[in-house]
Design a binder for these strands. Sequence first.
DNA 1: ACATCATAGTAAATCGATTTACGGTCATTA
DNA 2: TAATGACCGTAAATCGATTTACTATGATGT
Lengths: 344, 344
Amino acid sequence: MKYKKRTPVTKITIQDVALAAGVSPATVSKVLNAVPYVSAETESRVRAAMDRLNYRPSSIARSLKIKSTSTLGLITNDLEGVFTMSMMRGVEEVATQQGFSVFLCNSYGEAERERAHLLVLMDKHIDGVILLNGFRVGERPAPALPVGNIPVVYLFQYTHELAVPSIIPDDFGGAVMGTQHLLDCGHRRIGVINGPANYEATHERLKGYRQTLEAAGIPFDPALIRAGKWYESSGYALAHELMSQPNPPDALFCMSDSLAVGAMSALRERRLRVPDDISIVGFDNRAFAAHQTPPLTTVLLPLVEMGRLAGELLLQAIQTGQQTGEIHRVPCQFIQRASTRLTA
Amino acid sequence: MKYKKRTPVTKITIQDVALAAGVSPATVSKVLNAVPYVSAETESRVRAAMDRLNYRPSSIARSLKIKSTSTLGLITNDLEGVFTMSMMRGVEEVATQQGFSVFLCNSYGEAERERAHLLVLMDKHIDGVILLNGFRVGERPAPALPVGNIPVVYLFQYTHELAVPSIIPDDFGGAVMGTQHLLDCGHRRIGVINGPANYEATHERLKGYRQTLEAAGIPFDPALIRAGKWYESSGYALAHELMSQPNPPDALFCMSDSLAVGAMSALRERRLRVPDDISIVGFDNRAFAAHQTPPLTTVLLPLVEMGRLAGELLLQAIQTGQQTGEIHRVPCQFIQRASTRLTA
DNA sequence: ACATCATAGTAAATCGATTTACGGTCATTA
DNA sequence: TAATGACCGTAAATCGATTTACTATGATGT
């Protein structure tokens, strides 16, 4: 049990550096900010003084003057959500590139907390906020900003009501890709295992499936469609349901990888081989999709890319002071693996 | 596509409020900080002016003067780790209570990033840092602070080398609880399915098991011990291994809930009923433990409590300017559910 | 030789709060 | 009546940077 009395650390200021380098604080500030008109000789003297004194500029003082903290806020409904982290990584990537930090806040889905976080963030003078949420149809958009007005972008949720950019995946397009691939493989009876109806994504994806089918001249058969929760257990149960019909599907399009995993275990129980007897396509491209047997063909939800776009749009809004209320649909990406194959 | 030109928002300052209330800025500051010697009448006039103008004090300006940002940094190796979020919740809870915010950073396990985050946090003048990591034996502790010296606490990892408080679970004690419970149930051949040897926890837990056994006069039998990864698949495989021995165990102590779930499915395959034919105890108390059939008896890893303690110790260090290098072992908690029962 | 201009550097104001030291009131006490 | 002291309020310095406006110097062009 050692004790450590922290020394009062007389913070090195720009003044100290100036003194040590024999110049004025203004000059030190210039080299800090790469402002022209300081001679190479002076600059190196200042630089030397800086690291001799181990100087680190106070971003607080800087922020006070220039009115920017170089910090973005990111408030999420569910920090533990399976998609959250990937989007955050995208945001952080572009933020870091431009010298911004990201202040993460978890609202645990409570409007109260979200408001409180927003308030604190604004008091801290962050430059902009990303509101990150899973969206459900009928749910009202996140509350308008409580005070002031700083740039905001909606991520993984959207709104028409605010003049704020929204970023969502192109679920429709993703479903088109998955369906088209199964058609290309030669399948004609493609079953669908979908998620719950209170997610807008489920409707978009079903629409993509349906339109692709119809474009190929194949009639839509409601008997091939099932919906449940997003999880494995639903996939398992619904696959059994679909396959025990008189005229069962020859391919399954599962609207989440979890559903697909559940479905695969049902198929295994029915002694159906994937992809020899039946093809299966997932959605999301979760990490585990690649490690299934067989590795799952799936549609990638462009989470990192969405995060990047959110960061870019926000940074742009901060710099230009303008933002538009557009809805950006980021395209999905088809990932071919081994759970599908050309039929004879 | 609506356009929104953000108005330049002339920030309301303490001056404006002072003017509006007909007092000096100093007086406004006093009511803001609940400093005595301002008359009730004046105070209410100031308060009125504040919310008439919708005033929010600039925490930047405040921080510059008082040299405290009321912000804690929390750097984690793995934001997605299954235990991380619970600990964070604990930290945030006590921080919020005392008016502090928590700045979350993910180092993705890279020392480089950790250092970078640390630097940024210090530049932002946060008041203290929590370093949150899963620890493995032989791994060196997180790097010493790069610059300055602000209070630090280690969470879910420990060090003797720095005069910094560490907080870890009492794995030994947890294992004692689990083992004792199985003994109390009447079991005498208790199998162990452990995690990998490069986690210190596995050794502590095995020690707890062994000492409890020996205290009860039961000899330690190495044939009953298995170790693998922390995951379900290991639990499944190792349970089969243990149960196919000539003299199989009559109870299983799995050192993670995932291992226990895997083990239970192996037991199911062997037509052994839990808890009628064999008892099983998990470790961690993950969310899914309660939803198994039967619900899993387990040992709770006190993550939230650990987070709280980390927050308290850090806040304390910030306030007193002193910290000790103690290692705090937070007790586990035994959670009785239905996967164990008294044997005849 | 003189005006012009590019370059280097500085003094001082500023950002928005907090805090110290001090100046009035007014009631109480000697 | 004068001194004391408890209250209430303010002026001004301060935190650590940035930035504007200005000065000085030397080079260039005519």
